[in-house]
Structure formats: structure tokens, C-alpha cells
Design a protein around this nucleic acid. Sequence first.
DNA 1: CGACGCGTTGAATGTTGTCAAACCGAGTGG
DNA 2: CCACTCGGTTTGACAACATTCAACGCGTCG
Lengths: 238, 238
Amino acid sequence: MSASCPHNAAINCSDCRMNSLCLPIALELDEVERLNEIVQRGRPLHKDSHVYDIADEFSAIYAVRSGSIKTYSVSDQGVVQVTGFYLPGEIFGMDGIAHTHYISAAVAMETSAICEIPFSRLEELSMAMPSLQRHFFKLMSKEITSDQQLITLLSKNSAEERVATLLLSISARNAKRSLSGVRFRLPMSRADIGNYLGLTVETVSRVFSRFQKQGLLDVDKKEIEITDVSALQELANT
Amino acid sequence: MSASCPHNAAINCSDCRMNSLCLPIALELDEVERLNEIVQRGRPLHKDSHVYDIADEFSAIYAVRSGSIKTYSVSDQGVVQVTGFYLPGEIFGMDGIAHTHYISAAVAMETSAICEIPFSRLEELSMAMPSLQRHFFKLMSKEITSDQQLITLLSKNSAEERVATLLLSISARNAKRSLSGVRFRLPMSRADIGNYLGLTVETVSRVFSRFQKQGLLDVDKKEIEITDVSALQELANT
DNA sequence: CGACGCGTTGAATGTTGTCAAACCGAGTGG
DNA sequence: CCACTCGGTTTGACAACATTCAACGCGTCG
């Protein structure tokens, strides 16, 4: 039952179902082994518990093994901004690298298992392994480009376009993990979606209702079925 | 006249007035020298000429030596999003790392001089120089956090708050270069500001007028004088 | 001079936010 | 077992802020 349960801590990178997502493709087998040795696997986190909190000392970046994580920051005035949703195979915590402590927080949106990668050891390993260094440069660069896509979304798109884009993003990421891209469960609340997309809860709810009425979606609480993918893509591609 | 003219190409990192901004503090003198050797300094770019364009092959990141640069991306549907303004001493082009080609473009907003840092050689050098590798991890992480601050701004703040925040950001960055933080010239057009902040030109113009009427600013085209810093900070801090 | 780019201002429109109420499901305690 | 509360969600009515459309001013350049 070691490899069968996604929450199980007694797994390693070589066996992990997610390794094609979070590990560099270019790594040789023995290189994966060396990376595997520095990865810490803790026990499952339950819903709402923190992976790290704002002002915690920065020491590691993280990969989602199962479940889902959201990150958020809080401004000086106490305004909360959800900055990302992370699904299995995805990496988070890279914003802490520039500082000695985290400037955001990460919490489990449901029961989740994560891999902790101590940053100092990752730095050492990167010095010795060119492909690993390159991989992490790329990972960070990808974070930058995805942030910039969100900036464009917030800056230029309507409420409907924002919601459609988020749904398609989650759909695509599910598909990448060989899950259904048309039928899935949203791990986050309406409030989280609204906060992330710069909308109020009410607006998000109205958009879902409108999409349902228009036959684009079948919505049942957090269970979503996309019934008209191309119409949704049409909307997202403003 | 070699070091006196900021557009001059015949300068090196050791002498550059901006090196405290764009170089890692931790570098030893001989390390600066090695970095200096890979930096390419071209002739000044005139206004509106591209440093790189969308779909150009990615090969380098850049530092602004003088003048100012804006970066922007274009969506599939042709929607333009200004993603950043870069002043002397600041680094841009890091979003290209994740891809083989740039997904954004960079143009000079006025006559500017830039330093080109070939990425492959930077990677090599980073392998040998721990402080350099760390510095670039930090630079990218900083780009991520500044993007996330922009996300929060777009997601949660009003037009006035957005404009106030941008003005204070430029003010602070000027001050860091030992220029005046209260009296300066905006290098970008109202249209660029609006595009960057997710507002229309008209709204930006109205906000400037309102700020002037309220005695926060003295505006004369692109010349700005901040006449009430604390009131502006009050506004920017949601 | 006239055209053009850029910025400003006004009036009308509209999308989204605000406020308020109600619903629903899950869990709790009497 | 049922009434109760509570968090999350939905819906409606209204208000507000930003956009849209339009016109005009100003400086520059052909």
C-alpha cells in the first residue's frame, strides 16, 4: 500500500506519480536519487492548516503531492490577496527566496500531502547539477509568466472572462494529471475564487449561475461539469 | 568623458554608477571583473526601438544603464498588456528563461542604454560563483513578489489608489538612484500608465487632475511634483 | 497652415460592488 | 429526533465607480 495512497509519506521521487510534473525531465536516474534524498515528506496536512505562515523563516520550497494548497499575502492594512492555487505536481513557496522570511502564507484547502525541499540543499545540489539549476530557473520564470497572465486577466478582462479562464486553467491542469478536464471538484470556496480574481463573492456566484443558465456549465456546489468547452474558451479568449 | 556620460558604451561594471543596484553586493572585486567580461554593452537605443520583441529567441537578460524601458505582452487576441517599467539599475527579460523565445517585448520609452547579459554564460558563471547564483535566484524571486504586489493592486484597489501607488513607486526608485523623490519626469505616456494599471487613459487623466485639485501633485504634462507625500501615501495604503 | 498625437474634460451608460435577505446542508445540543 | 445555529452560497435592489463616446485644447511636424 506504499505507492497506492497519495497521502503516504513513505514514497520517493522515483515512484511518485507526480514526478513528471514537478521534476526536471532531464534528470538522470541517479540524479533523481540525489534529489530524492533531500526531499522531506511529512505527514498529511488537514484542511486549513498552514504549510508556512507570513513572517515564518524561509527555508524551503514545496511540491504538492496530493490535495491542494492556496497561497495568500496580507498587506500592511490587513487586506488579503489570494495569490495562487496549487494542485498536485506543482511547486510553491518561491516568493520567499528573495527574503529571509516568507511574505505570503500557504494553507491546505483540503487534506493534502506535500514534499518539502530545503532551499539551501537545493542550492548546493544545483551547483553540481546543471540540469537542476536550469530547471529551477525555469520554474521561477514560469511563476513570473503565470503571474503576468493573471495581471493581464485582472487588468483587461470582465468578471465572466476571469471566471471562464480560471475554470479552463483548472480543467487543463487536471487533464495534465490524467484526470477529467470536464468534470471535477473545485477545491476552493467562492470567496477564494473572488479574492483571487479581484471580484466579490456575489459576482462569482452570479457568473456561475449565468454560465449554468447559458448551458456552459453544470454546477452543483463545488462539483463542476463543463458542458460547452468551446463556448467557455470563446469567453476566456477575449 | 568615459564614465561621465551614462549612454557611453565604453564603461564597465566596476565603474558603473548603477552597480550597487544591479550587481550582487556580495561579489568580490575579481568576481565583478569576471561578470563584467560577459556583459555586452551596445550603442544607445532611441525612443520606441525594441530591445527584444515577442517570439525573438531568448538568449539574454538585460540591465538598464540609462533611460527607461517598458515591457509588454500581447495576448492571442491582440490585447496588449504593459507588464513593467524599468529604470536605471533594474533588470528585465527574466520571463524569457522558461521558454526558448521571449513571450514579451521590451522597448525604450526614451533614449536609453542597456547592458546585455547572455544567459548561457550567466548560467555557467553561476555554477562557479555561489553568490551569483543566489543573487539571480533572489532577483527572480523579487520579480515574482513585485508581480504579486501588482496583482493585489489591480485586484483590490481603486483607480486613485493605483495611480498613487505607481507614483510613489517611481518616486522611491528615483530616490534609490539619488535623484529627487518629489520632482521627476514620468518616462511613460498616460496610455502606458492606464494600460499597466488596468485603467483607461481618461480615468488616469481624471485622477491626475483630481490629485492636482486636491493639492497632492503639481502636474505639467509628464513633469510631476509631489506636493503632499503623506496624503499620497495615505491613499496608496488602501 | 493643417494634420496628427497626446492629453483633458463632459455627459451618458454599464458593469460590478454594496447592502440586505434568504437558502441550504452540516453539525450540535436539547 | 428535531430545532437550532453557522458557514457558505445564492439572489435581488440599488448605488457607485469606471468606461464609453464625444468634443476640444495644445504642441509638433510635415
